[in-house]
Simulated assay, not measured.
Amino acid sequence: MKEDFYDILGISKGASQAEIKKAYRKKAIEFHPDKNPGDATAEENFKKAAEAYEILSDEQKRARYDQYGHKAFEGGGFGGGGGMNMDDIFSQFGDIFGGAFGGGGGFSGFGGFGGGGQRRVKGSNLRIRVKLTLEEIAQGVEKKIKVKRKKQAPGVTYKTCETCKGSGQVTRVQNTILGRMQTSAPCSTCGGAGQSIDRRPDGADAQGLKVEEETVSIKIPAGVVDGMQLKVQGRGNDAPGNGISGDLLVAIEELPHENLQREGDNLHYDMYISISEAVLGSSKEIETVTGKVRIKVESGVQSGKILRLRGKGIPSINGYGKGDLLVHVNVWTPKTLTKEQKQFFEKMAKDENFTPNPEKEDKSFFEKVKDMFS
């Protein structure tokens, strides 16, 4: 079971963004590979801290994590500390260390940073929307989506940037009243990549990239909700040179169902029966997300009664079982009657069996609503 992100950083769930950033910086410095050469455990802890910070420092991601846990980012995302790439960590979080390991946020000779402090540029992210039926959400699904992404054009070559000499950064020294101050910033010529284009094939843009259509397979876990965002790492736009590819961000859109209404992990179904079926009882076939089932309707059932089919709802995104299917019984009153039918009901109007006489187990509307949400 994955470790809690708050526990990884050693903070409470109510921690502010400043506290989250401070806790991450402390952990990152403690477990940084430069301080722990050859220590696999330290490297793993370094990756875990970066993963936790990537989620908790983003308010929207943090809200989804607080509600759904690690399941909110399945089907993509960091996929666990062990699946992270050091290049990703340094390219995304290098600025958070300040001067702890050298000027300008660079790192000496590890991961995406060369001996000169070169910073590997990350390509831009792509965003798509995937529409899912309730049946697909209930069972999980693998979608193959065609995506147009920028990829390095065949035959493109790069050379070392003449401005930054391949470091990706430009250092400036200024004399101030406090003394000499050194500042570093990404090279404006190469955008921090440390390389500029040498040979550009036909059809490639100024960065040596070309738009191509590609089929991407996306595994979507059961129980996702409308508006949730999954991340498929490395399937966004390529970066020029030896940069890191961006990510593909997948927004979930839940399509409305013809007969079922979703409420969290529970489903609601309106079942209509005739007066005769309500009086005599019957067997009815109803629709679920996994197929049709037949349920027994007891004689004397009252309109508004809720029948609960346990485990026939949506799987919890956190893996805590499944929701229920709540079947709402509606007794259909005919609007037109034949002469014989009208005479029958007129005769029964004063019959004691047709006189409303609710018992204690016949709950009121408000009690039913309370039960439904409990």
Rank of each mutant, 00 (worst) to 15 (best):
G203R: 01
D205N: 08
A206E: 14
Q207D: 11
Q207H: 12
G208P: 00
L209D: 08
L209W: 03
V211C: 09
E212S: 11
E214G: 01
E214R: 01
I218P: 12
K219H: 13
K219Y: 09
I220P: 00
A222R: 02
V224C: 12
V224H: 06
V225N: 11
V225W: 08
D226G: 13
D226L: 12
G227T: 11
G227M: 13
Q229E: 15
Q229G: 14
L230T: 08
L230P: 04
K231L: 10
K231F: 04
Q233V: 15
G234M: 14
G236A: 09
A239Y: 03
A239G: 14
P240L: 13
P240F: 11
G241W: 01
N242F: 14
G243N: 06
I244C: 11
I244D: 09
S245C: 13
S245R: 05
G246P: 07
G246V: 05
G246K: 03
D247G: 12
L248T: 06
L248S: 05
L249S: 00
L249Q: 10
A251S: 12
A251L: 09
A251V: 10
I252Q: 02
E254A: 09
L255T: 15
H257F: 07
H257C: 09
E258C: 10
E258V: 14
N259C: 10
N259W: 07
N259I: 13
L260Q: 06
Q261T: 14
Q261A: 13
R262N: 05
R262S: 05
E263P: 04
G264E: 12
N266H: 09
N266A: 09
L267I: 10
L267M: 07
H268W: 12
Y269G: 08
M271C: 11
S274P: 02
S276R: 09
V279W: 01
V279K: 08
L280D: 14
G281K: 01
I286D: 00
E287N: 07
V289Q: 00
T290P: 03
K292T: 14
V293K: 07
V293N: 04
R294D: 14
K296T: 15
K296A: 14
K296S: 15
Q302R: 15
S303F: 03
G304L: 01
K305E: 15
I306Q: 08
R308N: 13
G311C: 13
K312G: 00
G313S: 07
G313T: 06
I314E: 01
I314Y: 04
P315K: 04
S316K: 01
S316N: 08
I317M: 07
I317R: 02
G319F: 03
G319W: 03
Y320D: 15
G323F: 02
D324Y: 02
V327A: 02
V327F: 00
H328E: 13
H328R: 04
V329A: 02
N330L: 04
N330W: 02
N330R: 03
V331E: 01
V331Y: 00
W332G: 03
T333K: 02
K335E: 13
T336F: 04
L337E: 13
